[in-house]
Each structure stands twice: as C-alpha cells, then as structure tokens.
Write a protein that binds this DNA or RNA. Structure first.
Length: 236
DNA sequence: GCGACAG
DNA sequence: ATCTTGTCGC
C-alpha cells in the first residue's frame, strides 16, 4: 500500500505519496495496477497564483552495463542560471517496457529529487505525461508523488499526430483514443516538434508556454539539455 | 493473432 | 537509451 500524506524523508521536498517503498512493483501487472490507482490523483488545472521561479529538469542516462545516472538540475526560470544540481548513480532494475517507462527511471529520480536543496516550482520531465495509454506517464507519476506541477516533454510521440506549422510556437493536438492528451509543439523553426503533455497541477496551455519559454536556443528545453549533459558526464 | 509502443 | 562522420547553416 502507498502511505498517503506522510513525509517519506524530511528534506527539501515533502512527498505526497511514498514514492517507491514499501510495495514498489516488480512485475508489469503490479506496475499497471499502481498506475491505475494513482491516475485519479492527477490534476490538470493550474493554481491561479502559480509563479514558476525555479524549474527542475530531469533526465536519466545509461551506460554500457546496467548502470544509469539520474540527473536533476534546478534553473532560475528567468535567467536560466543553475540553482542546484544532483546526480544519482543507480542500476536499471525494471526493463524498458513502453507504457511502464516510469518504473525504470522513477526510483533513481526520486532519490535525486530528495537530495535537492532548492525546491523547484515545476518539474520538466523527459517523457510523456497524460499522453500515455493509461494517461499516467512518467511526468504524471513524478508530479503526483511530489505534489508539484509537472510537464512531460517527449522527443517522440506515442501515437499519430499532424505536423504543426514551421513557425516557433505553433502546435497541433495530440490525440489518443479521440481524446486530446497533449500537443506537438514546434519549439524552433525548421526542427522536429516536441510532444508536450500535462503531468500534474498544470493546464495544457500553461504547460506549452512554460516549455516554450525554456527552449531559448534549441529544440529541447534548457532544463532537459542540462540534466542530460550532467548525467552523461557523471557516467564517465 | 500481429504490429506498434516515451527512454 | 546508446553506437557515430560528415555536413549544412546561423
């Protein structure tokens, strides 16, 4: 059982849901059951007073063996100055299964988040949020367990989509089972779009606006890029 | 049944 | 995810 409304550890972040203990799934069946149990907790509305000052970028890099590096960077949302960084070395215990991606990366990411000394206002995750077969991708899972607003930014879509216009900022709906689950967002002209979906405590418009704001120079948000290079560096 | 399927 | 050279363009 997940123990609700208790702190997992007492640090910068207070965990709304016990993130991994004691019943962390070890089988696909148990993982799907946990997703379906947590899915109703997802919120798609933005707090009226939400101000994103500190943005966290999360990414996991893999080595040749079964080692991985979970990296979290916290940036000033305006200046993009680094406020905090944490890297955690771990192993991949759960196989990569589409739809269960979170179970591979979430434990190490949670450990990294727990070691932050600056609390972020928003989590920018490398993967899907609601654009997921059970509407509970990595970004939703991280959002729900931390209680923080979160957004998923994926490099490839889960399903078919229509290509947005070439202009930066243009977007098209991402549909799954006749339902809008996110957007294909052009973050830079002449470059493939990214696939944005709500994770938690955010509406889709705001999610896209926050992502666009972080894509100052490249296709991917600066948060994701920094976390990626930090993890890559630590793996060597 | 078969293929597709975030990283 | 990761393995990689060159190449086009700002």
């Amino acid at each position: 059982m997940t123990s609700a409304t208790t702190c997992w550890r007492r640090t910068t972040l207070k965990w709304i849901i016990d993130p991994v203990e004691p019943d962390w799934p070890r089988t696909p069946e148990a993982a799907i059951a946990l997703q379906e149990r947590l899915r109703p907790l997802v919120s798609t509305t933005t707090d009226p007073g939400l101000e994103v000052r500190a943005v966290a970028g999360l990414d996991v890099g893999y080595a040749d063996d079964d080692r991985l590096a979970a990296a979290v960077v916290v940036l000033d949302a305006v200046t993009l100055e680094t406020l905090d960084e944490v890297v955690v070395l771990g192993t991949s215990d759960f196989p990569y299964v589409p739809g269960l991606f979170a179970f591979r990366e979430l434990p190490s990411l949670v450990t990294a988040l727990d070691r932050l000394s600056v609390a972020p206002d928003l989590l920018v995750c490398d993967g899907q949020g609601l654009a997921h077969p059970r509407r509970f991708g990595l970004a939703c899972h991280l959002g729900v367990v931390t209680g923080l607003p979160s957004v998923g930014v994926a490099k490839t879509p889960m399903g078919p989509f229509t290509m947005p216009d070439d202009e930066r900022g243009s977007a098209t709906d991402l549909l799954l089972d006749d339902e809008v689950v996110g957007r294909a967002l052009r973050t830079r002209a002449g470059v493939k779009p990214v696939f944005v979906s709500v994770g938690h405590r955010l509406d889709l418009d705001r999610a896209c606006a926050e992502v666009l704001r972080l894509c100052t120079e490249f296709r991917l948000p600066e948060t994701t890029r920094r976390a990626d290079s930090l993890g890559r560096l630590q793996l060597r």
